[in-house]
Amino acid sequence: MKLKNILLYVDSSQESQKALEAALDLSGPETTIIAVNVVNRQTVIQLTRSGEKSVAEAEVELEENGWCYLYNAEEIAKSAGHQIVIIQESGYPEEALPRLAQDYGADIILTGHSTGNSTTGSMVQQLIEHAACAVLVVK
């Protein structure tokens, strides 16, 4: 199967790093990796629940960290000669990824799976249900 577009979910997890490696393995000369970070509303709520951070502070932290993960992924992919574009969205990954996959004609969605993380587990389950294309969950 020749892949034209791979939608890659990028976050802070080690599994996300493994998903990037898998994306590079699956990429051919005609493949573009579309790396996406989602500023997760659920995480914003979690960060503000304790009262240590305001919503604005939590969003700034997540946005900035997210761009860092994206530029890191871009650096790795481009240094290896792969084609990659990066985007950041706000919302819920399980909703954003299937929509972006459709908008950008992705053949497959790649995401890491953090073992034992119930939030990630539930995200992956919903992603598989809602995606119109194949989903590869990397452990």
Partner: peptide, 16 residues
């Protein structure tokens, strides 16, 4: 490299 990545991240967030 970290300084480079953080600089780009800050600029991207700001101009976003």
């Amino acid at each position: 490299n970290n300084q480079y990545l953080h600089a780009m991240a800050r600029i991207s967030r700001l101009l976003g």
